[in-house]
Design a protein around this nucleic acid. Structure first.
Lengths: 150, 150
DNA sequence: CGCTTGCTTGGAGCGCACTCGAAGGTCATA
DNA sequence: TATGACCTTCGAGTGCGCTCCAAGCAAGCG
């Protein structure tokens, strides 16, 4: 049950989503593939409430359970949470992320739709960066002004 | 009453806040310095509700009124709204913007505090841009993957 | 005069993304 | 075996940033 090769961010059993191999986002002990919710809290900074809520709304596939019904998160789950964290930073609404999660669960034939969704997000991110750089210019002008004035 | 020189974004009667001269953000007829709320709605894209709310919470200084009590916005008010719009894009909480507005109303002796606040915001914006570029990299890897796969 | 349009106010309501509470089950350690 | 930490569920509550509503006033027009 141990998975030593880099785990895919996707939940689909695709042969090689090696695209998400390099950046291990949160510190994570090696040689382990089963974490309690409080461990995941420590890794991700999310609260246990939020993790359970993500599962309820379908933003995460059903997480494995121990024989007593407690959640046991896999490395794959952690990778997924990393992606969700990134998308959250872009301002993508949770509903859209849920949509993406659904596409992933539906299997490989949704690759096209997934790509579309990500490309739209990409455009949003680029626009967002441009806005922020614009704002940066305004801030710099004002800061310069206040530095001279004071 | 006509103000033909570039108007300052600050409400303080500072001799030369020329720093905010160049970028006229929203289209705005020249040779006029008094706009109804619906004109401001057209310029800024905000709703009248939001404009009145900004005033109630102290995010805008009290706006001039006509003899019948209706709001008459000045170019200076529009400049302020431009700044607020920019700060809003950075994710700055409304409460912080209100704080900044208070500093502006308190006069020139708050220059230092204003600069500090803006510099903190600047740091936030830079961090935000870095995050987004990080996310962009993830998106690009995934998009490439889906393009190859499909 | 009546009608419409646009503005005024204070306060209530909404959507989002969590966040928390209550009641109870499980587990490791002393 | 008992204490306390940690987990479970579902539903209700919170904070933010608006968003809307109802009631009423003022101006312009046929």
């Amino acid at each position: 049950m141990l998975q030593t090769t880099p785990v895919t961010t996707e939940q689909a059993p695709s042969p090689a989503d090696v695209c998400s191999a390099p950046p291990r986002r949160h510190p994570r002990p090696d040689g382990q593939d089963s974490y309690t919710i409080s461990e995941v809290v420590a890794f991700t900074g999310l609260t246990a409430h939020t993790l359970r809520w993500y599962e309820r709304i379908g933003l995460m596939a059903h997480v494995d359970r121990s024989h007593t019904g407690q959640r046991r998160y896999s490395n794959r789950d952690l990778d997924w949470l990393d992606l969700v964290g990134k998308l959250r930073l872009t301002g993508m609404p949770v509903a859209d992320m849920v949509r993406y999660a659904e596409l992933v669960r539906e299997g490989e034939h949704t690759y096209g739709q997934r790509r579309e969704l990500l490309e739209e997000t990409r455009r949003d991110v680029l626009a967002r960066i441009a806005e922020l750089q614009d704002t940066l210019a305004v801030l710099d002008r004002k800061i310069t002004f206040y530095s001279r004035g004071a």
